[in-house]
Write a protein that binds this DNA or RNA. Structure first.
Length: 106
DNA sequence: CATGTGACTCTTA
DNA sequence: GTAAGAGCCACAT
């Protein structure tokens, strides 16, 4: 397994419950060079249930990866189960719920 | 070896 | 304010 993919998955697991982050933040934190790499790495997380992939969304807080889950609604359901409001596939109060991996360095 | 695709983001018109 | 284009890197075919 490529190291950077493990790193991305690691970061995903470190996201606190009820919080979310975006691909760009992860890519920047791991210096992947592109947000697409983070997204692509998450694609490899498909099927790995130990990874809370539902807490990773695009920069607008939209659930862009919902189609990669078992069902298109699973991602939203998991977020709502953690207290995150989701309307029309977008996270409510995304600015407040946003979490960056750099928070760990403080 | 070359081409197409993607769970993205930023810049320019 | 909205819309379109380009850059980004790795992987599958």
């Amino acid at each position: 397994m490529a190291q950077y993919i493990e790193d991305v998955h690691d970061v995903a697991r470190l996201i606190p419950p009820g919080r979310v982050t975006n691909y760009g933040a992860i890519a920047d934190f791991l210096t992947l060079g592109s947000a697409r790499m983070a997204g692509w790495a998450m694609n490899k997380a498909h099927g790995d249930e130990t990874i809370p992939a539902h807490r990773v969304v695009n920069r607008k807080g939209e659930l862009s990866g919902r189609n990669h889950f078992a069902t298109p609604t699973l991602m939203q359901e998991r977020l709502e189960a953690e207290g995150v409001e989701v309307v029309d596939n977008k996270i409510v109060n995304f600015d407040e719920l946003f979490w960056s991996p750099t928070e760990l360095l403080k």
